[in-house]
Write a protein that binds this DNA or RNA. Structure first.
Lengths: 219, 219
DNA sequence: GCTAGAACTTAAACCAAACTTAAAATCTTT
DNA sequence: AAAGATTTTAAGTTTGGTTTAAGTTCTAGC
């Protein structure tokens, strides 16, 4: 088991690391938010423990960025503040548990185990942009069922939000290199997807850039 | 959302019930362990909240009996004691979360939501979804006898409710890696299972996602 | 404001994927 | 070894995503 602990109080961090490792939990430390986010993104951990008050980037921000990047590692938030609202807020923002400072290492270990033991969300192939969430594994956009081609097109847009994507690019990615290219394929599907976006009342729009292609933007 | 709250301090129980219901969470109350266990066994809840110190049967006992009976409803334990060991112990015995008294209702609500949101634990012999209960040890679905292959297929669906499952996945899981793959195996069985679902008048449907696979959903 | 090319929309046709059914083969049980 | 249950095979049918095509609307440049 391997965890990341992002904490600026170095004395505390060292003590916790020592205690966790006594229990066989390898612990990486970061003493500021930027380094923490960096490690959380680069390396694979079983669990990430985030202090909220941190230099450079708060724990809340790290959590947010991680989930944006689609990293679904379990996260436990730590804070000296015991305000209930904060707790509620974090759990809703994608944290898996919350622990108030000061805490006993035994309790932290229990929480880590509980959180790691939970079955993984099957493989969160979810890409988010604006108010949209594309679930590639389930082929749904905000819960609406999509067809295979619709998924592939939306993937291209959502992987490159606000970036121009040419019809040729879509033809290659979705229909494959070999096939004869007819822009009307793309146009037909764009039309259908726009209808869908309107139906689900999304604020995200597919904008046409005449002669060049399309891009998605928030209204 | 519907929860059961087992608590002998009636004043507290009433207040919590009131606050939960304000948030749209239907709350059943029991003021002793026996009634609590009874309700937990008979009715279907999204979450069960157990005080530990209770007349007749302790919260710990209720938890134990529930898990023995293979009821996998999420459980949150409450206690005035804040000893870490107790917390650790309960989490290891199958509780899903732990909250120390006194607590604020907002915090309880956050925990309930977090715990309900988690994907279901499955290893157990009985898996439930919607109005279906698949008993793997007896090979029955709502009492109807199933064949071995039918059980395995339903297991895959019910372990991942509302999630897309491809034919290839089913072929591997049910027929094994080595075998020659013919989608028609899956199709014939899906057809039979659909007939069965109709016969028992279940609200659960197997939905086809053309080109991608199947998923189960409540009508 | 006119025009031509680009982009959009719609509906119908097509065809591979999915469904159903029943009979043959295989495995189990007595 | 026969009876019964389950699984596999096969063939005919249906369905719906994709393609095709035709008509309409938009937009940039004159």
């Amino acid at each position: 088991m391997r965890v990341l602990y992002v904490e600026d109080a170095e004395l505390l961090a060292g003590a916790v690391k020592h205690n966790l490792e006594k229990q066989g939990i390898t612990t990486d430390l970061a003493n500021n938010g930027e380094d923490g986010l960096d490690l959380a993104v680069k390396d694979i951990y079983d669990c990430v423990i985030l202090d909220i008050m941190l230099p450079k980037l708060s724990g809340t921000d790290i959590l947010k960025r991680m989930r944006e990047k689609n990293i679904q590692t379990p996260v436990i938030m730590l804070s000296a503040l015991s305000e209930v609202e904060t707790k509620v807020g974090h759990l809703d923002k994608g944290a898996d548990d919350y622990l108030a400072k000061p805490f006993k290492t035994a309790e932290l270990i229990a929480r880590i185990k509980a959180v790691v033991r939970r079955p993984k969300t099957v493989d969160a192939g979810i890409i988010k942009y604006g108010d949209l969430a594309l679930d590639k594994t389930n082929a749904t956009l905000n819960g609406e069922q999509l067809t295979a081609k619709e998924v592939e097109i939306m993937t291209e847009f959502m992987k490159n939000p606000e970036n121009l994507i040419s019809k040729e690019h879509l033809l290659v990615k979705v229909w494959g290199e070999g096939n004869i290219c007819d822009d009307n394929y793309v146009e037909t599907y764009i039309s259908r997807i726009r209808k869908l976006l309107k139906r689900i009342k999304s604020h995200v729009k597919i904008v046409t850039v005449r002669g060049l292609g399309y891009k998605i933007m928030e209204k």
